[in-house]
């Protein structure tokens, strides 16, 4: 049983600060984390390993600093961490990124067959949700996005039953293996890392793959060259003009509320409020 988990180190977007003059991200001092959905993907992989034996390989594309994210994954129970890093990969969009990840998985697969591929449903910095599905298309494996539960998993029969959340409810799918799942947080709850993992992680050095070695990537498919999209411009959302403020402390509760209802009625936006209303009489 061999699971490959793809992760991304991202800025903690709940803590992002924007330079109001330039409209760009202030990166200095911005904390980085493993994309939260990816942590749950890894947890799922570790739980399957505990049940069926085998190993968990984690890979990431990113700057050299992303090695620390892989060490965290070893703490959580991964066996092997691969950092794909090279300046030539810079400015990759989702198409170029899915190429790099898919090509790396093919190289891993050549060493050791892969039964399952797990990705977070999306990364919180870009929120595109495109890389996982893109990798599935490139590898020509079944895709199950927005997975919330693995109901049954049979590595010998090469079949799995997976629940995914869709707009109408929960869809229960049977798939052949290997398959690629992009997961929601419910897929598996995070546990505290056990001590032996922490000890192993303390001395762990992730493997580093460049654009040329040990598995050369197609130069035309990576980085800027491999990316059909570019950022034309970036800007902070323009602020809207704030509306009037009514203070309950100044005008009293009933008057504050009747003022609001009169404004809503005057705007004519709600059929359940008569447009001529002046606010409810106390």
């Amino acid at each position: 049983m061999h699971t490959v988990v793809a992760i991304k180190q991202v800025p903690d977007t709940s803590n992002v600060r924007i330079n109001p003059d330039t409209g760009t991200l202030i990166r200095e001092g911005a904390p980085v984390i493993i994309n939260p959905y990816d942590v749950h993907a890894l947890e799922m992989a570790v739980r399957l390993k505990e049940r069926f034996g085998g190993k968990v390989t984690v890979l990431t594309m990113g700057p050299p600093k992303a090695a620390e994210a892989l060490v965290e994954c070893i703490e959580q129970g991964a066996d092997r961490g691969i950092l794909i890093t090279d300046r030539k990969f810079a400015a990759a969009d989702t198409l170029a990124t899915s190429y790099v990840i898919a090509h790396a998985i093919e190289a891993i697969q050549a060493e050791e067959p892969v039964d399952l591929l797990l990705f977070g449903k999306q990364a919180i910095d870009g929120d595109t949700a495109q890389v996982g599905p893109g990798v599935a298309s490139r590898l020509d494996v079944p895709l199950i996005s927005y997975a919330i539960q693995i109901e049954a998993f049979d590595p010998a029969a090469r079949r799995a039953i997976v629940h995914r959340r869709i707009e109408q409810g929960i869809e229960v799918l049977e798939t052949s293996l290997p398959a690629l799942l992009t997961v929601e947080k419910e897929i598996a709850a995070i546990r505290r890392a056990p001590l032996p993992n922490l000890i192993r992680a303390a001395g762990y050095q992730p493997e580093v793959w460049s654009a040329d070695a040990p598995n050369p990537f197609d130069p035309a498919s990576i980085g800027i060259k491999g990316s059909p999209t570019i950022v034309g411009k970036a800007f902070t959302p323009p602020p809207k003009e704030a509306g009037e403020l009514v203070h309950v402390a100044d005008v009293g509760l009933a008057a504050a509320v009747s003022t609001a209802l009169a404004k809503i009625a005057a705007a004519g936006v709600v059929a359940t409020l008569p447009a001529g209303a002046k606010g409810g009489s106390p």
Binding site: S14, I124, D125, V231, K233, A234, T236, P237
Partner: peptide, 10 residues
């Protein structure tokens, strides 16, 4: 992008 903190034209 970046959790709505920044707008990008692609």
């Amino acid at each position: 992008t970046f959790g709505g903190n920044l707008m990008a034209t692609i």
